[in-house]
Protein backbone atom coordinates (compact mmCIF):
# COMPACT_ATOMS: atom_id res chain seq x y z
CA UNK A 1 0.00 0.00 0.00
CA UNK A 2 1.32 3.46 -0.84
CA UNK A 3 1.68 5.83 2.08
CA UNK A 4 -0.90 8.61 2.39
CA UNK A 5 1.88 11.15 2.91
CA UNK A 6 5.51 11.17 1.89
CA UNK A 7 7.87 13.92 2.96
CA UNK A 8 11.07 13.90 0.95
CA UNK A 9 14.22 15.84 1.85
CA UNK A 10 12.21 18.76 3.15
CA UNK A 11 14.38 21.76 4.05
CA UNK A 12 13.51 25.17 5.41
CA UNK A 13 16.09 27.90 5.84
CA UNK A 14 15.23 31.11 7.70
CA UNK A 15 18.18 33.35 6.87
CA UNK A 16 21.12 31.68 8.59
CA UNK A 17 18.97 29.21 10.51
CA UNK A 18 18.29 25.75 9.13
CA UNK A 19 14.96 25.16 10.88
CA UNK A 20 14.26 21.95 8.98
CA UNK A 21 17.17 20.12 7.41
CA UNK A 22 16.63 17.40 4.84
CA UNK A 23 13.75 15.70 6.65
CA UNK A 24 12.11 12.62 5.15
CA UNK A 25 9.40 10.39 6.56
CA UNK A 26 6.14 8.81 5.51
CA UNK A 27 2.70 8.22 6.99
CA UNK A 28 0.60 5.13 6.27
CA UNK A 29 -3.15 5.10 5.71
CA UNK A 30 -4.98 4.89 9.02
CA UNK A 31 -1.88 5.51 11.06
CA UNK A 32 -1.31 7.90 13.95
CA UNK A 33 2.20 9.12 13.35
CA UNK A 34 3.96 11.08 16.06
CA UNK A 35 6.35 13.93 15.30
CA UNK A 36 8.27 14.79 18.43
CA UNK A 37 11.35 16.66 19.51
CA UNK A 38 12.56 19.41 21.82
CA UNK A 39 11.38 23.04 21.50
CA UNK A 40 12.55 24.64 18.29
CA UNK A 41 13.27 21.30 16.62
CA UNK A 42 11.29 22.29 13.53
CA UNK A 43 8.03 20.38 14.07
CA UNK A 44 5.63 23.25 13.45
CA UNK A 45 7.72 24.43 10.52
CA UNK A 46 7.44 20.97 8.98
CA UNK A 47 3.66 21.09 9.41
CA UNK A 48 3.43 24.50 7.81
CA UNK A 49 5.37 23.28 4.78
CA UNK A 50 3.21 20.17 4.40
CA UNK A 51 0.01 22.22 4.61
CA UNK A 52 1.23 24.92 2.24
CA UNK A 53 1.55 27.75 4.74
CA UNK A 54 5.29 28.01 4.11
CA UNK A 55 7.23 27.33 0.92
CA UNK A 56 10.06 24.91 1.57
CA UNK A 57 13.55 25.92 0.56
CA UNK A 58 13.84 22.50 -1.05
CA UNK A 59 12.33 19.04 -0.95
CA UNK A 60 8.88 17.80 -1.73
CA UNK A 61 5.63 16.62 -0.20
CA UNK A 62 3.54 13.86 -1.79
CA UNK A 63 -0.05 13.30 -0.74
CA UNK A 64 -1.37 10.02 -2.13
CA UNK A 65 1.40 10.17 -4.70
CA UNK A 66 0.45 13.67 -5.87
CA UNK A 67 3.06 16.34 -5.49
CA UNK A 68 1.48 19.07 -3.37
CA UNK A 69 4.66 21.03 -2.70
CA UNK A 70 4.13 24.79 -3.03
CA UNK A 71 0.41 24.49 -3.68
CA UNK A 72 -1.85 27.07 -2.12
CA UNK A 73 -2.85 26.14 1.44
CA UNK A 74 -6.58 26.27 0.66
CA UNK A 75 -6.05 23.88 -2.23
CA UNK A 76 -4.11 21.41 -0.10
CA UNK A 77 -6.89 21.59 2.50
CA UNK A 78 -9.50 20.92 -0.17
CA UNK A 79 -7.46 17.92 -1.31
CA UNK A 80 -7.80 16.51 2.22
CA UNK A 81 -4.77 17.64 4.25
CA UNK A 82 -5.96 19.80 7.14
CA UNK A 83 -3.79 21.26 9.90
CA UNK A 84 -4.61 22.57 13.32
CA UNK A 85 -2.65 25.37 14.94
CA UNK A 86 -0.27 25.29 17.87
CA UNK A 87 -1.70 28.50 19.32
CA UNK A 88 -5.44 28.19 19.87
CA UNK A 89 -6.88 29.58 16.66
CA UNK A 90 -10.64 30.06 16.59
CA UNK A 91 -13.20 32.57 15.47
CA UNK A 92 -13.44 33.90 19.01
CA UNK A 93 -16.36 36.25 18.26
CA UNK A 94 -18.56 33.53 16.74
CA UNK A 95 -20.51 30.73 18.36
CA UNK A 96 -19.22 27.19 18.61
CA UNK A 97 -21.72 26.19 15.94
CA UNK A 98 -20.65 28.92 13.51
CA UNK A 99 -17.01 28.02 14.02
CA UNK A 100 -17.59 24.45 12.94
CA UNK A 101 -19.93 25.55 10.16
CA UNK A 102 -17.09 27.53 8.60
CA UNK A 103 -15.11 24.30 8.67
CA UNK A 104 -17.60 22.74 6.24
CA UNK A 105 -16.43 25.09 3.49
CA UNK A 106 -15.42 22.30 1.14
CA UNK A 107 -18.91 20.84 0.96
CA UNK A 108 -20.89 24.08 1.38
CA UNK A 109 -19.12 26.70 -0.71
CA UNK A 110 -21.40 28.25 -3.22
CA UNK A 111 -21.51 30.82 -5.99
CA UNK A 112 -23.02 34.23 -5.72
CA UNK A 113 -26.06 33.57 -7.90
CA UNK A 114 -27.03 30.46 -5.96
CA UNK A 115 -26.48 32.30 -2.69
CA UNK A 116 -28.70 35.22 -3.68
CA UNK A 117 -31.48 33.07 -5.11
CA UNK A 118 -31.27 30.50 -2.33
CA UNK A 119 -30.59 27.69 -4.81
CA UNK A 120 -27.99 26.24 -2.47
CA UNK A 121 -30.40 25.63 0.38
CA UNK A 122 -30.10 21.84 0.18
CA UNK A 123 -26.33 22.08 0.33
CA UNK A 124 -26.43 24.49 3.25
CA UNK A 125 -28.78 22.23 5.15
CA UNK A 126 -26.40 19.34 4.62
CA UNK A 127 -23.58 21.47 5.97
CA UNK A 128 -25.66 22.24 9.04
CA UNK A 129 -26.27 18.52 9.54
CA UNK A 130 -22.58 17.76 9.14
CA UNK A 131 -21.80 20.48 11.67
CA UNK A 132 -24.22 18.98 14.17
CA UNK A 133 -22.65 15.57 13.68
CA UNK A 134 -19.14 16.86 14.29
CA UNK A 135 -20.29 18.74 17.39
CA UNK A 136 -21.82 15.58 18.78
CA UNK A 137 -18.74 13.57 17.91
CA UNK A 138 -16.52 16.03 19.77
CA UNK A 139 -18.90 16.33 22.73
CA UNK A 140 -19.58 20.00 22.05
CA UNK A 141 -23.27 19.73 21.19
CA UNK A 142 -24.56 21.34 24.40
CA UNK A 143 -22.19 24.24 23.96
CA UNK A 144 -23.09 25.03 20.40
CA UNK A 145 -24.65 28.43 21.06
CA UNK A 146 -21.86 29.64 23.30
CA UNK A 147 -19.22 32.02 22.01
CA UNK A 148 -15.91 30.31 21.29
CA UNK A 149 -14.12 32.83 23.51
CA UNK A 150 -16.20 31.73 26.50
CA UNK A 151 -15.13 28.07 26.39
CA UNK A 152 -12.62 26.66 28.88
CA UNK A 153 -9.23 25.96 27.34
CA UNK A 154 -9.73 22.21 26.97
CA UNK A 155 -12.91 22.72 25.00
CA UNK A 156 -11.33 25.44 22.88
CA UNK A 157 -8.76 22.86 21.81
CA UNK A 158 -11.53 20.39 21.08
CA UNK A 159 -13.32 23.05 19.05
CA UNK A 160 -10.19 23.67 17.00
CA UNK A 161 -10.11 19.96 16.18
CA UNK A 162 -13.85 20.04 15.43
CA UNK A 163 -13.35 22.82 12.87
CA UNK A 164 -10.71 20.81 11.08
CA UNK A 165 -12.82 17.64 11.21
CA UNK A 166 -15.71 19.51 9.61
CA UNK A 167 -13.44 19.95 6.61
CA UNK A 168 -13.56 16.14 6.20
CA UNK A 169 -9.80 15.58 6.10
CA UNK A 170 -8.09 12.41 4.97
CA UNK A 171 -4.97 13.46 6.80
CA UNK A 172 -5.08 15.56 9.94
CA UNK A 173 -2.00 17.42 11.15
CA UNK A 174 -2.46 18.17 14.86
CA UNK A 175 -0.05 20.64 16.40
CA UNK A 176 0.09 20.14 20.17
CA UNK A 177 -3.61 19.51 20.78
CA UNK A 178 -2.88 18.55 24.39
CA UNK A 179 -0.99 21.69 25.35
CA UNK A 180 -2.23 23.17 28.62
CA UNK A 181 -4.77 20.43 29.25
CA UNK A 182 -5.36 18.90 32.67
CA UNK A 183 -5.19 15.08 33.02
CA UNK A 184 -8.97 14.77 32.72
CA UNK A 185 -9.06 16.80 29.52
CA UNK A 186 -6.03 14.93 28.22
CA UNK A 187 -7.75 11.57 28.68
CA UNK A 188 -10.84 12.87 26.91
CA UNK A 189 -8.81 14.26 24.03
CA UNK A 190 -6.89 10.98 23.66
CA UNK A 191 -10.18 9.12 23.31
CA UNK A 192 -11.37 11.58 20.73
CA UNK A 193 -8.16 11.33 18.75
CA UNK A 194 -8.44 7.56 18.72
CA UNK A 195 -12.03 7.86 17.50
CA UNK A 196 -11.00 10.22 14.75
CA UNK A 197 -8.53 7.64 13.53
CA UNK A 198 -11.20 4.92 13.72
CA UNK A 199 -13.43 7.07 11.54
CA UNK A 200 -10.82 6.67 8.81
CA UNK A 201 -8.61 9.72 9.17
CA UNK A 202 -4.82 9.37 9.20
CA UNK A 203 -3.12 11.60 11.74
CA UNK A 204 0.23 13.24 12.30
CA UNK A 205 0.54 14.34 15.90
CA UNK A 206 3.03 16.90 17.16
CA UNK A 207 3.03 16.74 20.94
CA UNK A 208 5.20 17.22 24.01
CA UNK A 209 2.89 15.22 26.29
CA UNK A 210 4.71 11.87 26.27
CA UNK A 211 1.84 9.96 27.82
CA UNK A 212 -0.39 10.97 24.95
CA UNK A 213 2.29 10.34 22.34
CA UNK A 214 3.23 6.91 23.62
CA UNK A 215 -0.40 5.94 24.12
CA UNK A 216 -1.65 6.99 20.72
CA UNK A 217 1.09 6.78 18.11
CA UNK A 218 1.90 3.76 15.98
CA UNK A 219 5.24 5.17 14.89
CA UNK A 220 7.31 8.21 15.83
CA UNK A 221 9.67 10.56 14.03
CA UNK A 222 12.06 12.36 16.34
CA UNK A 223 13.39 15.73 15.22
CA UNK A 224 16.31 17.53 16.77
CA UNK A 225 17.73 20.81 15.45
CA UNK A 226 15.82 20.27 12.24
CA UNK A 227 17.14 16.80 11.45
CA UNK A 228 15.61 13.35 11.91
CA UNK A 229 17.17 11.72 14.94
CA UNK A 230 15.13 8.54 14.91
CA UNK A 231 12.15 6.94 13.21
CA UNK A 232 10.40 3.90 14.66
CA UNK A 233 7.87 2.47 17.09
CA UNK A 234 7.44 4.17 20.47
CA UNK A 235 9.37 1.37 22.18
CA UNK A 236 12.29 1.62 19.79
CA UNK A 237 12.47 5.37 20.10
CA UNK A 238 12.16 5.36 23.86
CA UNK A 239 15.23 3.18 24.19
CA UNK A 240 17.41 5.05 21.70
CA UNK A 241 20.25 6.65 23.71
CA UNK A 242 20.53 9.55 21.22
CA UNK A 243 16.90 10.43 21.78
CA UNK A 244 17.28 10.29 25.54
CA UNK A 245 20.36 12.47 25.24
CA UNK A 246 18.55 15.04 23.05
CA UNK A 247 15.67 15.34 25.47
CA UNK A 248 17.85 15.53 28.56
CA UNK A 249 20.30 17.90 26.93
CA UNK A 250 17.80 20.11 25.17
CA UNK A 251 15.30 20.28 28.02
Amino acid sequence: MTPILEVKNLTMRFGGLLAVDNVSFSVNEGEIRGLIGPNGAGKSTTFKMIAGFLSPTSGEVLFRNNNITNQRSSRIASAGVVRTFQETTLFQELTVFENVLIGTHKQAHTNIIAAVLGLDRQKQNEAIEATTEVLEFMGLAERKNQLAAELPLGLQRALAVAISLAAKPNLLLMDEPFAGMNPEETRHMMELTERVRESGVSIVLVEHNMKAVMGLCDRLVVLNFGTVLDDGTPDQVRNNPNVIQAYLGGG
Partner: peptide, 20 residues
Protein backbone atom coordinates in the same frame (compact mmCIF):
# COMPACT_ATOMS: atom_id res chain seq x y z
CA UNK B 1 -22.79 31.27 3.15
CA UNK B 2 -20.64 33.77 1.27
CA UNK B 3 -21.13 36.36 4.02
CA UNK B 4 -20.04 33.84 6.64
CA UNK B 5 -16.96 32.99 4.61
CA UNK B 6 -16.08 36.67 4.15
CA UNK B 7 -16.28 37.07 7.90
CA UNK B 8 -13.91 34.12 8.31
CA UNK B 9 -11.49 35.61 5.80
CA UNK B 10 -11.48 38.87 7.72
CA UNK B 11 -11.01 37.61 11.25
CA UNK B 12 -8.80 34.54 10.87
CA UNK B 13 -7.56 34.24 7.32
CA UNK B 14 -5.13 31.42 8.11
CA UNK B 15 -7.80 29.36 9.84
CA UNK B 16 -10.10 29.88 6.86
CA UNK B 17 -7.32 28.78 4.50
CA UNK B 18 -6.73 25.69 6.64
CA UNK B 19 -10.25 24.43 5.92
CA UNK B 20 -10.01 25.19 2.22
Amino acid sequence: RIGLTLHAVHWKGVLAESVG
